[in-house]
């Protein structure tokens, strides 16, 4: 479809050019040019991994705090520390820090700083664990998200998160962000 439109546009441009004499040399390129090919639904689905603040993009699946705890111990705590508290140098602390943002030593963690719980799912899925990004199943990402939120006291021990429940989790610093007016 796309290439057919482009072809017609090209023919049109050639026709106009031959009628308009010298105009063709300075003419703008036709738009659209017809470059590229239609993206297939399958390739879009495979690449479309982002999750928006309102939960758009969350996949099917679910994960519990309990499952997340076990997975965290085996895949995450080496860098982030047991229960996300004492990370190795260069690795972010994941819990605590509430009430510190206006002090001389702010501690920015998932619990104290992050405005959206959905961002946690998005980031774990795209970039964690550090040595093997993209290796977790969606269920595992839900479970780790649930566990890190539990570490911060944001969800209860029995929490099981999925595409319906995760967007409803309200983060402590949800209203702490202001768009820079001078961006």
């Amino acid at each position: 479809m796309h290439s057919r439109i482009a072809l017609l546009a090209s023919i049109g441009a050639i026709a106009l050019g031959s009628i308009g004499f010298g105009l063709a040399a300075a003419a703008e390129p036709p738009s659209p040019l017809g470059f590229g090919r239609p993206a297939t639904p399958a390739e879009i689905a495979a690449a479309d991994i982002d999750v928006r603040a309102d939960g758009a993009g969350l996949p099917p699946g679910r994960g519990s705090v309990t499952d997340g705890a076990a997975l965290f111990a085996s895949s995450c705590s080496a860098c982030h520390g047991e229960q996300g508290q004492k990370p190795v140098a260069g690795s972010p602390r994941l819990m605590g820090g509430l009430g510190t943002l206006a002090t001389p030593k702010p501690v920015k963690t998932v619990g104290s700083y992050w405005p959206y719980a959905t961002t946690l799912f998005d980031y774990i899925r795209r970039a964690m664990p550090f040595q093997a990004p993209g290796s977790l199943s969606d269920d595992q990402v839900y479970a780790l998200t649930a566990y890190v939120l539990r570490l911060n006291g944001i969800v209860p021990d029995a929490a099981v998160l999925d595409a319906a429940t995760l967007p409803k989790v309200r983060m402590p610093n949800r209203d702490g962000f202001v768009r820079n007016p001078n961006g």
């Binding site: 943002l101 206006a102 700083y113 610093n173 962000f177 202001v178 768009r179 961006g183």
Partner: peptide
């Protein structure tokens, strides 16, 4: 303690 974002 508030955060400014999209500081482009």
């Amino acid at each position: 303690g508030t955060a400014r974002q999209f500081n482009f």
